[in-house]
Design a protein around this nucleic acid. Structure first.
Lengths: 239, 239
DNA sequence: CCCTCTAGGATTGTCGACAATTTGCGTCCC
DNA sequence: GGGACGCAAATTGTCGACAATCCTAGAGGG
């Protein structure tokens, strides 16, 4: 009303997030970073005490993570952090490839390519910083943020929603197999080239680079499998 | 032990599904078929009475549907069935296009093409039956089952997981705009051609047909928008 | 010595009640 | 008559306790 737009830009309700959402986010981070290793059992009573809330909101948060696929629930047994088998690595990257290809297409065709490219370059800068400081964790985080930004730039609610779990799972892969990395310069450069292709509006190059990016990763993380030729992993834990 | 495999093939725990899961499925069906129209407010107390359970399990089911994107939650206000705007129709089909393209690729390259094609043909038979009986609801259901089967055949846990919500939302679109249908023969034939391309292992044709299938649908449901040229909808309700 | 059955402990599933917050309506003042 | 304030009803958010179920360890019998 009396407040001109632009003033007080960031006032929001004191508690705009539900308790369950806060807990879910904290657990998500813990799982993502490896603080809660795969296979860990999460006791409701114990966690409720740690978060100082009742079991009600905590259960809701857990249920949320279960439906996201980060926890697996065994009835009357408990909740466990999922453990990723080789087949899952393949599956994750195949799904990511599909999502990010679509996001890239929408970014390419939806206009505003330069603005998106600028956004992506910020995350690449973060990667470079993390690389120069020799911080593998931060490097992985920045890497993921690149892909998160790409998908956000697509402007598709559903691509964003579907990618959320995938990126967390990707982070789990990266933390679990932190040793098998490629050269950091190479890792940064792949993303830079991707941005350039986007900026140029070169669809074929962008899509090819993206596919190669995924193929590289999956072969490094799960040797012997391939995205492009449909070579299924040895023990697919699929339904 | 003493039971040779193959005997008693279908005995399972008396209640292998949690109460919340049962409720969630029932609500899902109700939303999908339009029994709960978009925008409806769902009171916890009322529903708890209808299902004859406490509010605890019911809340879990609701939370599940919220995280799936079928309900939207306003704090201290209530839960509402999402209503699909034109921008959402575009978004849904863009996402479906990405998922099903990937599923088709894995079906094409993963071997067992004939087995998958046979499975898909069963659902096309269902479509034909529904068409001959002039049952639009059953026709839509069979249509969705075709795509569900295709994604299941991909063998990818994550594609299946991501597609679940998308297919429900698609069903909502179909029930909401049930009038704007194409000729039923055409609708059946499109799927038949898709199966043939899959059986032949003709990747280019299969992918092209699939893309056209989606493009047709989106243009019929949300005229003026297009998947392929990135023509964004007039009022994108995206984040 | 090994298998089976039973009792114990622990964990999840469910419930009913209380507290916090929002919305709508009625009232009061200008 | 119009607007703002305050109250009350309804709904969601949270909590603690009880019930059902499952794993484990130990004793007993073969």
């Amino acid at each position: 009303m009396a407040l001109p737009p632009g003033m007080l830009p960031e006032i929001e309700p004191v508690s705009r997030e539900s308790t369950a959402a806060v807990i879910a986010r904290q657990l998500r981070d813990a799982i993502m970073t490896g603080a809660l290793p795969p296979g860990t059992q999460l006791g409701e009573t114990e966690l409720a005490a740690r978060f100082q809330v009742s079991r009600g909101p905590l259960r809701e948060a857990m249920q949320h993570l279960v439906s996201e696929g980060l926890l697996r629930s065994e009835r009357h047994r408990g909740l466990f952090v999922i453990d990723l088998e080789p087949g899952d690595v393949y599956d994750i990257y195949a799904a990511r490839s599909a999502i990010e290809r679509a996001a890239m297409l929408r970014a390419l065709r939806g206009g505003d390519r330069d603005r998106i490219a600028d956004l992506l370059e910020q995350t690449v800068d973060e990667m470079a910083t993390a690389a120069s400081e020799d911080d593998p964790g931060a490097l992985s985080t920045a890497d993921l943020r690149f892909h998160e930004a790409l998908i956000n730039a697509s402007g598709s609610k559903r691509l964003v929603r579907m990618a959320r779990t995938l990126l967390i799972e990707t982070r789990m892969c990266l933390t679990a197999l932190q040793s098998t990395y490629q050269r950091v310069e190479e890792r940064v450069e792949e993303h830079t080239k991707l941005i350039q292709a986007l900026r140029d509006g070169d669809e074929e190059t962008a899509l090819t680079l993206l596919e190669a990016h995924m193929e590289d990763a999956v072969q490094r993380l799960a040797p012997g499998t391939s995205l492009t030729d449909g070579h299924a992993p040895p023990v697919p834990g699929n339904a």
